[in-house]
C-alpha cells in the first residue's frame, strides 16, 4: 500500500489526555512515529502514525477512545530549505488542496504527512514528479 493509515483520536481538552493515549500504546509496545494535535476550545483531534495500526485501534477503543482511520500520504524530501515547498508547488499547480499536514525528521531527511482533498490524484502527481513516497513498510 502506497498510502499509510493514520489514527485520528477524539480528545476532550482535559489535562493529561495525550499522555493517557501514550500510556495505552506503550502498554501494548506500540511506537508513536509521528503525531500532531488540532484543537478547539473544548476538544481536539490527535493524529497519530504508529507502528501497529490494528493493535493500536483495538487497544484504544477498548480504553473508550473514539478512534478512526484516515488514509494519508507520507513523502520524504531532503532536509534542506525549499525542498518541501517544491513539492507543494506541484500539488498547488494541479489544484490539490491540503486539509492538513505535519512533518517529522529522521536524520538528514524530513518526512511530511499530507492529507489531501483527493488522495489518488495527489499520489499520481507526486509520482509523476518523482517525489519519494514512503509506504507502510519503509516507515
Amino acid at each position: 500500500m502506497i498510502t499509510i493509515k493514520q489514527l485520528s483520536i477524539f480528545l476532550e481538552n482535559k489535562n493529561g489526555r495525550i499522555n493517557d493515549v501514550a500510556k495505552v500504546l506503550a502498554k501494548e509496545g506500540i511506537n508513536m512515529q509521528a503525531f500532531s494535535m488540532a484543537e478547539t476550545a473544548d476538544f481536539g483531534i490527535l493524529r497519530l502514525i504508529v507502528s501497529d495500526v490494528e493493535k493500536a485501534v483495538t487497544a484504544l477503543r477498548a480504553a473508550d477512545f473514539a478512534v478512526m482511520l484516515t488514509d494519508v500520504v507520507c513523502i520524504q524530501c531532503a532536509n534542506t530549505p525549499g525542498s518541501l515547498s517544491a513539492v507543494l508547488d506541484y500539488l498547488a499547480a494541479e489544484n490539490i488542496f491540503i486539509e492538513y499536514m505535519y512533518a517529522f525528521s529522521e536524520g538528514d531527511t524530513a518526512r511530511t504527512i499530507i492529507r489531501p482533498t483527493d488522495l489518488p490524484r495527489c499520489i499520481e502527481i507526486l509520482q509523476k514528479n518523482h517525489c519519494r513516497i514512503i509506504d507502510t513498510y519503509s516507515l
Binding site: 477524539f10 476538544f43 486539509e99
Partner: peptide
C-alpha cells in the same frame, strides 16, 4: 458522546 468509530479527522467537520 461521540461514537468510538465515527467521527471525522477534520476539525472543521466536527465543528
Amino acid at each position: 458522546e461521540v461514537r468510538r468509530d465515527f467521527f471525522s479527522d477534520e476539525l472543521s467537520t466536527m465543528l
